[in-house]
Write a protein that binds this DNA or RNA. Structure first.
Lengths: 127, 127
DNA sequence: GAAACTAGGTTTCAATACGAAACCTGGTCT
DNA sequence: AGACCAGGTTTCGTATTGAAACCTAGTTTC
């Protein structure tokens, strides 16, 4: 049964807890953050600088949620000033392939998407 | 160059158009809809019933965006009453594997996530 | 001939999430 | 004392969301 690995959970069901998880990982910022941590740990401000346009608030919020869900590990180093290091847990690493596929898809197929958009918008303007 | 397939696009850059695309496909509803169309075309109300909790407004909105981006094909059949059929384009089909990986991940690892949440919440309450 | 039902939406409006900017903490350097 | 760093949190105005109602156009039911 390849498409129904666990009979108790169904992401199509409105009240299934998997919905919350999908909500977490099916998010622009979460995908970028997880992808960012794919090749090792990174500190808060490094992630912030790497992901253009993310605000501190959103970054800390999403990281906190990912930590709660067991995908990301937060390690505080008692240096001065304090350094906080984020990395993927082993659970988080099971997601990296899927996450990378999605983010890479955008880069690989951008031109086709842009052509489709032009076609769509043209149709609407011309009538 | 496996991790940088197209030098012109970088999903980490704030103003890169890939960001808009990631915003589209990195979305709870879009992922469910794309996954829903994975094994064939479906009509509006069929999708609506299959995905518990989605509203008509959101469904039509997301479908419209996916159509504009060339991922989904909308076909109107002049029957009575009119039947509208949605299906994946060939571009959309290149995404199915990644999408399925994400949605299935949630079903497969839900228990580990729940354990992590309990651990996290317990830590905060106890100490 | 008028309710009621179908499919496929759109509109409305209140609630929620979001993002930019400011602020905070606690320590160092000048 | 004043400025700076890391790693956040708070504030507040705006954008997005979702539930519910409505719409169009045709069909069957009474």
């Amino acid at each position: 049964m390849p498409s129904r690995p666990h009979p108790a959970f169904d992401v199509y069901a409105q009240n299934c807890p998997t919905r919350m998880v999908l909500n977490r990982i099916g998010d622009k910022w979460a995908l970028l953050i997880l992808d960012c941590l794919r090749d090792g740990s990174a500190r808060f401000s490094v992630i912030r600088r790497k992901i253009g346009g993310i605000s501190q608030k959103v970054l800390s919020q999403v990281l906190k949620n990912l930590e709660r869900d067991g995908l990301v590990l937060r390690t505080v180093h008692a240096t001065v000033p304090v350094a906080v290091e984020y990395s993927l847990t082993s659970l988080g690493e099971t997601l990296t392939q899927a996450v990378a596929s999605l983010t890479h898809w955008a880069e690989q197929h951008m031109e086709e998407v842009q052509e489709a958009q032009l076609r769509y918008d043209g149709k609407r303007i011309d009538g």
